[in-house]
Amino acid sequence: MSPISYACQDGSARIRLARGDRGNPINQSTVDALAAAVRQARTDDAHVVVLSAEGRAFSVGGDVSAFASAGDVEHMIDDLADSLHRAISELHRMDAVVVAAVQGAAAGAGLALAAAADLVLAGASARFTLAYTKLGFSPDGGSSLLTASLGLHRALRLALLNPVVTAEEARELGLVAEIHPDDELEAATDAVARQLRAGSRAAQVATKRLLRETATPATEAALRRETLSIRARAASADGREGVAAFLGKRAPKFGQGQG
């Protein structure tokens, strides 16, 4: 079973995380399938790309159990982050407006993936949290780019204190554009996609490029810095302890090794 489903009709490409039974974790197979779906959307010349997810959560974030079982976690994280960042970069640069529909948890890389969209619609159940530092990791997936959209100190609060942010709070922060009851989220997303398809595609593409290039002119460099940082953190004593504590459902004891 593929972790991603893809369909394109009437100018709308739909990329859907399809492992709702597991909370749609972000692992190598998910990222590879995501990248393939984004490439297909470009081939199909989609006007709008809708990112959504099956199940109760948009995505619980990185597959922590896979981190624990990796023989060389630094190499594994480097490959995973690099692959994720290529897909994120494609979403930023593609000639389509990207709309994310988020229900339930969007944690870690799940939050970063949602934030890669140009417009984020949320169900009332949506909850956003970065949570990387809880594992002893630093953020990836373009999380550092939140400084441009949210402001430095709001982004630092999310990254350092790891609050669980409600849909309403996320709208107040500027991350979420609209909130709808969960059972109306799909219809609301379809309505936004139709509104976009009815508009001037050329004007929308020009606008997306202007605003994104002004807000984050050095995206690729920022993503590479994230990769280098998270791979080092994952291989550190604190990173190994954070993963073990998460899987053991206990509080981590950081600072016992070399950081």
Rank of each mutant, 00 (worst) to 15 (best):
residue 50 V to H: 00
residue 49 V to F: 02
residue 33 A to L: 08
residue 46 A to M: 09
residue 48 V to R: 01
residue 57 A to C: 07
residue 47 H to D: 04
residue 33 A to Y: 08
residue 89 S to L: 15
residue 41 A to S: 09
residue 50 V to A: 00
residue 43 T to F: 14
residue 38 V to Q: 09
residue 85 H to A: 12
residue 72 D to R: 11
residue 83 S to W: 03
residue 80 L to F: 04
residue 83 S to M: 08
residue 89 S to M: 15
residue 41 A to L: 06
residue 47 H to K: 05
residue 76 M to V: 11
residue 65 S to A: 13
residue 52 S to P: 04
residue 73 V to D: 02
residue 33 A to E: 02
residue 52 S to V: 09
residue 84 L to H: 09
residue 51 L to G: 04
residue 57 A to F: 10
residue 88 I to A: 08
residue 84 L to M: 10
residue 87 A to M: 08
residue 45 D to F: 14
residue 69 S to Y: 01
residue 63 D to S: 05
residue 87 A to I: 09
residue 36 A to S: 03
residue 47 H to T: 09
residue 46 A to R: 07
residue 76 M to A: 13
residue 67 F to W: 03
residue 58 F to Q: 06
residue 88 I to Y: 04
residue 45 D to C: 15
residue 64 V to I: 08
residue 86 R to P: 01
residue 56 R to E: 15
residue 46 A to H: 08
residue 88 I to H: 10
residue 81 A to V: 12
residue 79 D to P: 15
residue 38 V to G: 05
residue 63 D to A: 11
residue 90 E to S: 08
residue 80 L to Q: 02
residue 91 L to C: 02
residue 61 G to F: 04
residue 42 R to W: 01
residue 86 R to D: 15
residue 56 R to L: 13
residue 65 S to F: 12
residue 91 L to S: 07
residue 54 E to I: 04
residue 80 L to K: 00
residue 60 V to G: 12
residue 33 A to H: 06
residue 43 T to W: 15
residue 55 G to Q: 03
residue 78 D to M: 06
residue 38 V to F: 12
residue 56 R to N: 13
residue 76 M to F: 13
residue 37 A to P: 06
residue 55 G to V: 00
